[in-house]
């Protein structure tokens, strides 16, 4: 899987690259408009992360050119502008997603994987990990082929964890993803503890070979036992 990261801030570019490489993606980068245009039209990418404000040009112009060529699939806009107009224009031009900075790396992982998954669907849409299977279409969870009932939030949490296997998922990232913007002021995120606790119990009882471990009290990680 080849991903192009178009981002002029090198520090940000590095972190994104480092994070995505951990997921075994092949990453290429472009830091300005012209390099980006060149790479976009010379090579094919499975996914393009596109910053809007670039030196020498706008990311939206790149998107327009891509649309002309019919290559505008699988673009995720990453922008510091939380402007509805930009978002609408970007999505109208065929971008798949719009991520406002600052975002969590776990969120970026999830979005990238969701898009790649949509592209490479062969009829079924499942994530497999150890002896477990999560069916995203049916919203079912199986351990050793046996169904384990999960409530809506538990499913969303597990789904997010599975998009970030073996990776740190901070509590904030999880809260924003599963509970939405309403947690932005939450001074403590302990409210999600009970959901995680229930999920852990269900994983244990169904003898799943995966477990949720705490990471320094700041977040969690889903690992194989």
């Amino acid at each position: 899987m080849k991903i192009l990261v178009i981002e002029d801030e090198l520090q940000l570019q590095n972190s994104i690259t480092e994070s995505l490489e951990k997921e075994n993606f092949l990453i290429e980068t472009a830091a300005d408009y012209h390099t980006a245009m060149e790479k976009v039209f010379v090579y094919d990418y499975d996914c393009i992360l596109l910053d809007i404000m670039l030196p020498n040009g706008s990311g939206l112009d790149i998107l327009k050119e891509l649309k002309k060529e019919g290559k505008n699939g699988n673009v995720i806009i990453i922008s510091a502008k939380d402007s509805l107009d930009d978002k609408l224009e970007g999505l109208e031009l065929g971008a798949d997603d719009y991520l406002t900075k600052p975002f969590h790396l776990a969120e970026l992982n999830a979005r990238v994987k969701a898009i790649l998954r949509r592209k490479n669907l062969n009829g079924k849409n499942t994530i497999e990990f150890a002896n477990t299977v999560l069916d995203l279409n049916e919203r079912q969870f199986y351990v050793d082929g046996k169904g384990v009932p999960l409530n809506r939030k538990e499913f969303d949490i597990l789904n997010y964890f599975l998009f970030n296997k073996n990776r740190l998922v901070t509590k904030t990232a999880m809260a924003e993803h599963v509970w939405g913007d309403n947690t932005d002021q939450a001074d403590n995120l302990d409210f999600m503890y009970s959901q995680i606790k229930n999920l852990r119990k269900k994983l244990q009882r169904s003898q799943a070979d995966i477990e949720i471990v705490s990471v320094y009290g700041v977040g969690y990680k889903l690992v194989e036992k």
């Binding site: 940000l12 600052p102 975002f103």
Partner: peptide
């Protein structure tokens, strides 16, 4: 718009660096 860009981007950088750092096993 610029202020948001100027602040959001460094904030994103710091968050990402810290997230990557916290993933390290040997802390």
């Amino acid at each position: 718009g610029n202020a948001s860009h100027e602040l959001q981007t460094p904030l994103a950088m710091v968050t990402h660096k810290l997230e990557l750092l916290l993933e390290k096993e040997d802390l």
